[in-house]
Write a protein that binds this DNA or RNA. Structure first.
Lengths: 154, 154
DNA sequence: GAAGATTGACGGTTCAATCTTT
DNA sequence: AAAGATTGAACCGTCAATCTTC
């Protein structure tokens, strides 16, 4: 019997689990977590800000989770929630200047750490791995369509 | 500049995040979570049982987490903790017969769902992806050695 | 003192229910 | 009624501190 596809998917889970765990330690000296860095990274690339719903879609997490994440980050004055006049249901979430500074300080460290992981591998192989991971992602999305309705990913 | 290795690692995180999220939904009808299934799966393959420390190493999670996981599973009577006469610090954790039944009921469903994700892909490419994921895993372990000491993985 | 297990504090995540605004 | 945001309950996970046993 052929176990390879099964093992490959399980390995993706294992690797990402470890990556998440160690990233947390990497970010620790900066007083931030991986989940919070992801928010910083998204907002850093969108100076005009975005709604919590957009963040929820891009981060692929529940919107209630975004609320809690932003609460903590707002407390530390890294982000602000601005009311939107045109639609009073939504907040426009932006980086503060100190949030932006933090992002620019951490970004190169994280980037270097991540790049070092595959620095010795062949481009061709990394491309294939990337492709397979993308396929798994899209197939898992099919999964959920067949089982339970889920919001459309952005 | 070459973003590919960076994007590949980030994609591994994204894919696994989604996989984790949807697996939770897949397991839901069985009244179990992915983390709990992983315990079931390990114990199912080790009828003689194992210590919580061993579980912690194999699952790559903190030992305090194992305590909480097992508390919930013990409450549902899927596992038991037996005291070990030779060393009264450790518990020998085993599946109950109802835990074993549950595992055997869920296992084929999970396996089929996972296998379906890569059913159309070429063996050669899946092999490459598997290899790259393994490399990332081992490199992340190097990471932690350089930054902070970490327990040796089993 | 070291090892296995536990506890408390905290952050991340989902889900169901709710509130306000559209 | 539908959409954006929030809340409360529950689970997953880490870390630091503690307890018992070795």
């Amino acid at each position: 019997m052929n176990n390879l596809p099964y093992e490959c998917v399980i390995q993706a889970l294992r690797t990402a689990n470890l990556l998440w765990r160690e990233s947390r330690r990497l970010f620790r000296p900066f007083g931030i977590t991986e989940a919070q860095y992801n928010v910083l990274h998204l907002l850093g690339q969108h100076p005009e800000g975005m709604s919590q719903k957009e963040l929820s879609n891009l981060l692929v997490v529940d919107s209630s989770n975004v609320t809690l994440l932003l609460n903590r980050m707002e407390k530390r004055k890294w982000i602000t929630r601005r009311t939107v006049l045109q639609d009073r249901r939504v907040y426009n979430v932006c980086l503060t200047s100190s949030g932006n500074t933090l992002w620019e300080k951490i970004r190169p460290h994280y980037r270097d750490a991540v790049l070092s992981l595959l620095s010795k591998e062949q481009t061709k192989e990394v491309e294939t791995a990337y492709k397979i991971l993308k396929i798994i992602e899209s197939q898992v999305n099919q999964w959920s369509i067949n089982h339970q309705p889920l919001e459309v990913m952005s």
